[in-house]
Design a protein around this nucleic acid. Structure first.
Lengths: 191, 191
DNA sequence: TGTCTAATTAGATAATAAACTAATTAATTA
DNA sequence: TAATTAATTAGTTTATTATCTAATTAGACA
C-alpha cells in the first residue's frame, strides 16, 4: 500500500469528531441528523466529516426516502489501520513490483487470443497485473454506472462481481453511490 | 484506550514526512541528521517531527556521544494502530455468523486441493472463516514459539506475518513475550 | 403544484501545523 | 579553554481545515 494512501487514512482519523463518528457507526447505521444530534454539531459539519471518511472508503451508505443511513466499512478500516504495520517490512516477503516482461507474460498467460480473461489469478501479484490491465480499458475521468462497469467486466469474465470488488479493494477504482470512477494510477496497488 | 489518545496517535501519522520516518526506522535506528539527509529536510524539521512521534510514545532513543539514535517502538505502534478496531464494540450490526454450508463453501474456495491457502480473503467474514480454519490446525493449550507459528502459517501462505497478526487481532490467539497460545473459541471473533 | 425534510454547498473565520532561517544549547575533544 | 558537532528552540510564513450561518438541492408526499 502506498505511503500517501496510508497518510490519507490517518488524516481521516486525526480528528476527534470523526473518531466519535466511527465509534457511533460501530454500533450500527445512523443518518446524518442523528449523528449531528448525538455529537451536538450541525448537519453541515457532519456532511463535511462524512465526506472525509468516505474519501478513504470508510463509509457505506443506504438511502431510504430522504434519509441516508451511513455505516462503517469494516474491511477498509481494518486493512488501512494495519497497513502501517507492514510498511518497509512486508516488501521483503511480498514483492509486488513486476518488470515489463513479467507483466507481458502474465497478460499473455491469463488473457486468451480473443482478449477474454481465462481465469482470475489467485496469486496476488498476477491478480494485480490483470486488474490494472482491465482498468486501462476504461476512460480516466469518466463516471460509470454500476451496470456499465459490470457489463464491461462481464465482457472479459463471467464473474464480473469479483472483478468489480477487487478493483475497489485494490484502489484501481473509486465507488460512491453506485457511481464508479477510475483512480489515478498513483493510487493503484501496483502500476 | 481513550478516544483522545487514539486521535493523537492518528494525528502523529497524518503526515507524509512522519510516515516516511517510520518507514526508515523500520529498517533500524538512525540519527537525526541521517534522517534529514535521506528526506532532504533540515535538522530542525526532523526535531519537530521526532517530538510529535515521541509524544505518542512511538520513539525510543539512545545517545552515543553527541549523536542520538532514534528507533521505533513497535509495541506502541501495533497497539495504537489496532486500537481503532476495538472502539465502541457494541456488536449490534456485526453479524459474523455463517452457516455450516457457507463455511464449507468459503473453505473450499480459498484453500486449494493440497490444503494451501490460495489468497487471504479481503472480505471480513470470509477472512474470519479462513483464520478459524487455520487455528484449528493448532493444539489447544500448547505454547508455541513465534518461529513455530510462522512456520506453520507459511506452510499455508507466504505472507505468514499478516496471518499471524490477524490471528492476534481477532482473538484467535494470545501473544505475550514472543509466546503464542490458542484462545478458547468463545473469545474468537467468530466460531 | 407547493410544502416538508434531510442533506449538501458556499463562504467566512479561527485554529493548527509544516517548513524554513537564525540563534542557542549541550556534549565532546583538541 | 576553545573549537566542533549534533540537536533543539524561537520566530516567521504559508497552507490546511474544523466549524459555523445562510442558501440551495433533492426527494417524498399531500
Amino acid at each position: 500500500m502506498q505511503l500517501t494512501l496510508i497518510v490519507e487514512f490517518h488524516k481521516a482519523l486525526a480528528d476527534l469528531t470523526r473518531i466519535r463518528i466511527l465509534a457511533l457507526l460501530k454500533q450500527g447505521p445512523l443518518h446524518g441528523q442523528a449523528i449531528a444530534g448525538k455529537l451536538s454539531l450541525t448537519p453541515p459539519t457532519i456532511t463535511h466529516h462524512m465526506s472525509r471518511l468516505r474519501d478513504v472508503g470508510l463509509i457505506k451508505e443506504r438511502r431510504d426516502k430522504n434519509t441516508i443511513y451511513f455505516s462503517l466499512n469494516e474491511n477498509v478500516l481494518e486493512s488501512c489501520a494495519t497497513a502501517i504495520l507492514s510498511i518497509g517490512k512486508g516488501e521483503k516477503n511480498m514483492d509486488m513490483s513486476v518488470t515489463a516482461e513479467e507483466r507481458e507474460a502474465i497478460i499473455n498467460n491469463f488473457f486468451s487470443a480473443d482478449g477474454k480473461l481465462k481465469t482470475i489469478p489467485a496469486q496476488r501479484k498476477k491478480r494485480l497485473v490483470v486488474l490494472s490491465h482491465l482498468v486501462k480499458g476504461l476512460e480516466f475521468g469518466k463516471i460509470y454506472s454500476e451496470k456499465e462497469i459490470s457489463d464491461y467486466l462481464r465482457s472479459y469474465h463471467p464473474d464480473y462481481a469479483t472483478l468489480r470488488r477487487e478493483l475497489i479493494i485494490h484502489q484501481f477504482m473509486y465507488r460512491k453511490d453506485g457511481r464508479y470512477e477510475m483512480n489515478p494510477p498513483e493510487l493503484w496497488s501496483q502500476g
